[in-house]
Amino acid sequence: MDKIITFEDFTKVDLRIGTIIEVNDFPEARNPAYLLVIDFGDLGLKKSSAQITKRYQKDELLQRQIVAVVNFPKKQIATFMSECLVVGAVDGKDVILLHPENKVKNGSTVS
């Protein structure tokens, strides 16, 4: 473990639960990815790209709750402006999405 952060550093990261409501192909991406629209309840809708095409089909992702960082600045990815970062566990080159065990309110905080 070579990157130690303080508790105060961790509290700056705004992790929230959202539900994927739209999934589209992203042919302009350098690596295979989907374009996602995610509902974060009172925070509104946010867009993200995710390199999860190896593990997930588009229809599997619809209505799936996920964990995302919602307080990063927007980031240009090819022709797309990403507004949040979907969180997943990396298993080799595969990404497995993190999600709540039970359905929760969109926008719920993760701590």
Score class of each variant (00 low, 15 high):
1 M>I: 09
4 I>Q: 13
4 I>N: 11
4 I>H: 14
5 I>M: 07
5 I>N: 08
5 I>H: 12
6 T>Q: 07
9 D>S: 10
9 D>Q: 06
10 F>M: 07
11 T>E: 15
11 T>W: 01
13 V>K: 13
13 V>G: 04
14 D>S: 15
15 L>F: 14
15 L>Y: 12
15 L>P: 07
16 R>I: 05
17 I>K: 02
18 G>F: 01
18 G>I: 08
20 I>S: 01
20 I>D: 00
21 I>M: 05
23 V>N: 03
23 V>D: 01
26 F>I: 03
26 F>Y: 06
27 P>E: 08
28 E>Y: 00
30 R>C: 05
31 N>F: 15
32 P>H: 04
33 A>M: 11
33 A>G: 12
34 Y>S: 02
35 L>K: 15
36 L>P: 11
36 L>E: 05
36 L>C: 02
37 V>W: 00
37 V>C: 04
38 I>T: 11
39 D>G: 13
40 F>M: 05
40 F>Q: 05
40 F>D: 03
41 G>K: 07
43 L>E: 04
44 G>A: 04
46 K>W: 08
47 K>M: 10
47 K>G: 03
48 S>T: 12
50 A>C: 10
50 A>I: 08
51 Q>G: 14
52 I>S: 00
52 I>C: 02
52 I>T: 10
52 I>H: 00
53 T>W: 14
53 T>Y: 07
54 K>M: 11
54 K>F: 03
55 R>W: 05
56 Y>P: 02
56 Y>H: 09
58 K>E: 12
59 D>Q: 06
59 D>E: 15
60 E>T: 02
61 L>E: 03
62 L>Y: 06
62 L>S: 06
64 R>Q: 12
64 R>N: 02
65 Q>L: 11
67 V>C: 14
68 A>N: 03
69 V>T: 11
69 V>N: 09
69 V>C: 15
70 V>R: 13
71 N>I: 05
73 P>T: 09
74 K>C: 09
74 K>L: 00
74 K>W: 04
74 K>Q: 13
77 I>G: 05
77 I>Q: 04
78 A>Y: 07
78 A>L: 00
79 T>P: 00
80 F>Q: 09
80 F>K: 11
81 M>S: 11
81 M>Y: 13
81 M>F: 11
81 M>W: 13
82 S>Q: 08
82 S>R: 07
84 C>Q: 06
84 C>P: 08
84 C>W: 10
85 L>D: 14
85 L>A: 13
88 G>E: 03
88 G>Y: 06
88 G>N: 05
89 A>T: 06
89 A>L: 11
90 V>I: 15
90 V>S: 03
90 V>G: 00
91 D>P: 00
94 D>I: 15
95 V>D: 00
97 L>S: 09
98 L>N: 01
98 L>C: 01
99 H>Q: 13
99 H>L: 04
100 P>L: 12
100 P>A: 08
103 K>V: 15
104 V>Y: 15
104 V>I: 14
105 K>E: 11
106 N>L: 02
108 S>M: 02
108 S>Q: 04
109 T>W: 06
109 T>P: 06
110 V>E: 09
110 V>F: 14
111 S>A: 15
